[in-house]
Computed example of a mutant assay.
Amino acid sequence: MPKKERKRLQVVISDEQDALLTRTAYELSSPERLISKSEVVRLAIEKIARELGEGQATGHIEEYRAILGHEGAGDED
């Protein structure tokens, strides 16, 4: 069975963000299955997109924008 074709995205993250990813992956992992940092990122993308699509994130939108505005001040897409 061929692998699913996936797009690759390279982003620059801070040491603090990397530590958060590592800690989250560790906490989500179990003895039966280790969770990678990439899987944590994919989960976060799906969770935020689902919340926005279902209208659940309305209380968090300004918080998300503030975080992105603060951290992404020098970033380009």
Rank of each mutant, 00 (worst) to 15 (best):
P2I: 01
P2Y: 05
K3C: 04
K4A: 11
K7P: 01
R8N: 15
R8F: 09
L9D: 03
Q10V: 12
V11A: 11
V11N: 12
V12M: 03
V12G: 08
V12W: 14
I13Y: 11
I13D: 04
S14P: 12
S14W: 11
S14E: 15
Q17V: 05
Q17T: 04
Q17K: 14
R23M: 09
R23C: 01
T24I: 04
A25P: 05
A25S: 11
E27K: 09
L28K: 03
S29D: 00
S30E: 15
S30L: 07
P31M: 03
E32V: 14
E32L: 15
E32S: 07
R33Q: 04
L34M: 08
I35C: 06
S36Y: 00
S36F: 01
S38L: 06
S38T: 07
E39C: 05
V40W: 00
V41A: 10
V41C: 05
R42S: 04
R42P: 05
L43P: 00
L43D: 07
L43S: 02
A44L: 13
A44Y: 12
A44P: 07
A44T: 06
I45V: 11
I45G: 03
I45P: 08
E46C: 09
E46T: 12
I48W: 08
I48D: 08
I48Q: 15
A49S: 05
R50V: 03
L52N: 06
G53I: 10
G53R: 15
E54Q: 10
Q56N: 15
Q56F: 07
T58A: 07
G59W: 14
H60S: 03
E62W: 14
E62R: 12
E62G: 03
E63F: 14
Y64M: 07
Y64D: 09
A66R: 12
A66W: 14
A66D: 13
A66F: 10
A66M: 14
I67V: 06
G69R: 02
H70G: 02
H70S: 15
E71G: 03
E71N: 04
G72A: 04
G72K: 06
G74S: 06
D75W: 15
E76M: 10
